[in-house]
Amino acid sequence: MVQRVSSQRLGAQSGIEAMVYEQARQPVQSWWKTLRRYRWHAGSVAWILHRITGIALLGYLFVHVWALRSLVKGEAAFQAEMTLFTTPLFKFAEWLLFAVVLFHALNGVRIVVVDFTARGAHRHKMLLRLIYGVGIAAMVLMGILIFLDPFAV
C-alpha cells in the first residue's frame, strides 16, 4: 500500500521527486512481482541474457580448467576423457556452449560499441539484429565443424 507522505517531509523539490521517493519507500516486492514488472524488449532481454550467459561461462571456466588437469596425469587419462568428450551428447553440449560463448562475445562487442561510439546508443537495436544474424550464421558453421569435421586429416 502506498503511504501518503508530504513532499516537505521527504525533502523533495517537486511532486515528481516526491513520487519517486514514495516508490522507493515501498516494501521489497517478491521476485515474481519484480520479474513481471520487467519491460521485455529486445535490449532488456539481451541485458538479461548477457548476465545469464556470463555466469554460465564463469562456471564453465572452472570446469574447463579442472578437466584439463588430466593432461598432468598422462596420455591414458587424457585420452579416456577425450573419448567421453567426443560422444554425440558432449558434441551437442559443445555446440550449445558455443552458442553461449557467441552470444556473450557478440553482445559484449555491441555493449562496447554502444558505450564508446557517438551514435552507438541510437543504433543499439540495429546492432542487436546484426549480432543475432552473425550469431546464427556462426552457429551453422560451427555445427558443420563439430558434427561433420570436414577438415579432418
Binding site: F78, T86, G108, L145, V153
Partner: peptide, 25 residues
C-alpha cells in the same frame, strides 16, 4: 572483454578447427 573476444577467437580457430586438433594428447 574485448581482449577475451580476441583470445576466444584464436582459441576456437586453433583448437576447434578439427576434432583432432582439440582432443588429441
Amino acid at each position: 572483454g574485448v581482449l577475451l573476444v580476441v583470445f576466444t577467437l584464436g582459441h576456437y580457430l586453433t583448437v576447434h578447427w578439427t576434432e583432432a586438433a582439440g582432443h588429441s594428447f
